[in-house]
């Protein structure tokens, strides 16, 4: 399979802060990736490095086989939608959509017009008068209608309401199906996007924590719930990702169980329940491990 992105031992330091710390991964062509992690984990810095907007402290980056920095050939094929994109003082949305085609060879005006109607974006209002959500919708429209072979969305929907977010997901899927391309979506709303993703990258404190197929990751963990003694007997010395308890009940998250282990658990009167991608990532990236007595 062709790699759209190849990153080797990439690091970026700001003074003493290691924003990105010795990260290596590849991104396959025409897949939708989720770039997930907590605030300040290094997601935005990583995307800025990948799009040539920051210089790496060390390591190499290759996009479409070439380094991205100051490389028009690479950047023409790349679209980076930032969380807080700034526009010139007097710009109106219509000016954005007039200039965007200059930068993106695959720009589809008809698609953009349809999205503008979907998001009910007022084209003639000054950008500084737009609401936070309307501002975000400009970025989403540019990101979708540019049809760039490599598109980054960095928290694209700050302030977008639930209806608008659903429109974004639906249009993304629909257009991706007809025009396959590589999409990297960075977001906190993991539950909302988890079914759209084919592959998941999780970074935490600048390190790449997870680089896995989304389907594999979804099946990676299971909650085992039951009487404390029975749960403890069942898990033995298995790796425990998370532990909750209330009264005599215990809820423990363990790594993937085999079919026979599932049968054993049922036979022991334990209940098994799935762990969502969001729950799994919360459990893997949280630092405190204290047991919550209140929530089960």
């Amino acid at each position: 399979m062709t790699s759209t992105i190849e990153v080797t031992n990439l690091s970026k330091h700001f003074g003493k802060v290691n924003a990105v710390n010795d990260v290596s991964f590849t991104v396959a062509e025409n897949k939708i990736y989720g770039l997930l992690g907590r605030n300040g984990a290094g997601k935005t810095t990583l995307m800025q490095l990948l799009t040539g907007q920051e210089f790496a402290s060390s390591g190499t980056i290759s996009l479409f086989g070439q380094p991205p920095v100051e490389n028009a050939k690479v950047l023409q094929n790349t679209c980076f939608i930032k969380e807080s994109q700034r526009y010139p003082e007097d710009f109106r949305p219509k000016d954005v959509f007039k200039t965007a085609p200059w930068f993106f060879a695959n720009w589809d005006q008809e698609f953009a017009d349809r999205l503008i109607a979907d998001f009910r974006l007022p084209l003639d209002r000054r950008i500084k008068k737009l609401s936070r959500g309307q501002l975000s919708s400009i970025g989403v429209i540019v990101g979708l209608a540019s049809r760039a072979p490599l598109t980054f969305f960095d928290e694209p929907y700050l302030g977008l309401d639930a209806v608008a977010r659903q429109i974004f997901y639906d249009r993304l899927l629909e257009d991706y199906a007809n025009h396959p391309r590589t999409v990297i979506l960075s977001t906190h709303l993991i539950d909302e996007v988890s079914n759209l993703l084919e592959h998941v990258l999780v970074i935490d404190e600048g390190k790449l924590l997870i680089n896995e197929d989304a389907e594999t990751l979804r099946n990676r963990a299971t909650n085992v719930v039951g009487m404390k003694t029975a749960v403890e007997a069942f898990i033995g010395n298995r790796e425990v990702l998370h532990r909750d308890g209330i009264g005599g009940l215990s809820s423990v998250t363990v790594a993937g169980l085999s079919e026979s282990e599932r049968r054993d658990a049922h036979a022991a009167g334990l209940e098994l329940s799935p762990v969502s991608l969001q729950q799994l990532i919360i459990q893997l990236t949280r630092t405190e491990t204290k047991e919550f007595e209140a929530s089960a």
Binding site: L173, E198, A214
Partner: peptide, 17 residues
């Protein structure tokens, strides 16, 4: 595949599988 993906709101690769 694309119709399934749009209907269930899932990645087309998952629908294909």
């Amino acid at each position: 595949i694309n119709e399934f993906a749009a209907f269930y709101r899932i990645n087309p690769a998952t629908a294909l599988k």
